[in-house]
């Protein structure tokens, strides 16, 4: 099986654009992202890497296959946050957050759609939580919440 890591030498992403998007969409305070540098590869994959004095921007001279965590990608509907990033930064979200009950949570983790409506939610990508803990990224459209959990992360027989 071929494996494609997202290659291409990373360049700095527009920090203001990244931080402004998370603030605008989810109300995540700017200072949450202060310890991180952002890189962009390919057609719009944004990575967050903890800033380090010992290796600013990673070790110079190494060819990286991945550098930190992919936090968002450019798609048809604009920026799309990753489930992994939502699980880390989603706890600072103040809006476009939806809380699920247990049955809904199980459906979401299995990758299924959940019928709403969910009042107070704008259409677009949302932070999906269970008991206050962010589970991942959902897409809310026309009253339906679509799980954006990647296939490899889905669980059907959740304990």
């Amino acid at each position: 099986m071929a494996v494609s890591l997202e290659r291409g030498s990373p360049r700095r992403a527009d920090r203001r654009e990244v931080v402004a998007w998370w603030a605008e969409r989810f109300g995540v305070p700017e200072e949450v992202f202060e310890p991180y540098d952002f890189f962009i590869t390919g057609k719009g994959t944004v990575w967050a890497l903890r800033r380090s004095e010992r290796a600013p921007g990673g070790v110079q001279g190494l060819r990286y296959e991945a550098l930190g965590m992919v936090i968002m990608r450019k798609g048809k509907l604009g920026w799309k946050p990753t489930t992994n990033a939502i699980q880390v930064f989603g706890r600072h979200a103040r809006k476009n957050v939806v809380e699920l009950d247990e049955a809904q949570m199980r459906a979401f983790v299995a990758g299924e759609d959940i019928r709403g409506p969910f009042p107070g939610l704008e259409e677009g990508y949302v932070v999906v939580c269970y008991r206050g803990v962010p589970l991942g990224c959902g897409l809310y459209r026309r009253g339906v919440l679509r799980s954006q959990v990647p296939k490899v992360r889905r669980r059907v027989e959740l304990i």
Binding site: L5, R50, R63, A66, L67, N84, V88, R153
Partner: peptide, 12 residues
Amino acid sequence: ERLGVLNMGVTA
């Protein structure tokens, strides 16, 4: 990425 690691780079 699942474990929320942000200080790691991968080389091959």
